[in-house]
């Protein structure tokens, strides 16, 4: 095949947090930028995300957070990915204050897409994240 295959990304929300407007906008944005979005939706756990990421062989995991739990759940997500032996970058979107971004980066989160991030920035960031993912066979 001549074209590179579409990049696969998994999108999910963790726990009770039901604010999925942003996640759905991102899903549509990425679809229209040629990505294959595995949409896991609401009420996931770090564990269920890892299981899906592994089976779906995604290049990026995108987690949306609107409940202020990002400082706990973000690092927990990164740890769960690493514990499963996966090397998949984790990107967080949603309501994350700028002052928390360095902390999240230190914990291995690839990027944080805060409120008001331009859609083109979203696409560029996911491309950059996917580029760090170890490539395919052949």
């Amino acid at each position: 095949m001549s074209d590179p295959p579409p990049i696969r990304i998994l999108l999910a929300k963790l726990g009770f947090d039901g604010h999925d407007r942003g996640l759905k906008v991102i899903a549509r944005t990425l679809r229209d930028a040629g990505f294959e979005v595995i949409y896991l939706g609401l009420r996931q756990t770090a564990g269920s995300v890892v299981i899906a990421a592994e089976q779906e062989d995604v290049a990026v995991i995108g987690i949306s957070m609107h409940n202020g739990g990002h400082l706990t759940l973000g690092p927990m997500m990164v740890r769960a990915v690493a514990d499963a032996g996966l090397e998949i970058p984790v990107v967080i979107g949603g309501i994350v204050p700028a002052e928390d971004v360095p902390t999240l980066r230190e914990h291995g989160i690839f990027a944080v897409l805060g409120p008001g991030t331009a859609l083109e920035t979203v696409v560029a960031t996911i491309h950059a994240a996917a580029a760090t993912h170890d490539g395919m066979v052949g």
């Binding site: 726990g15 009770f16 947090d17 409940n67 202020g68 739990g69 706990t72």
Partner: peptide, 22 residues
């Protein structure tokens, strides 16, 4: 708070960080 809104108790695993918050 969120756990109550979801019909769960404050000791539900997902309640961590949510009890009494909003």
């Amino acid at each position: 708070d969120m756990p109550t809104l979801m019909g769960r108790d404050s000791d539900h695993p997902w309640s961590v960080g949510e009890v009494g918050r909003a």
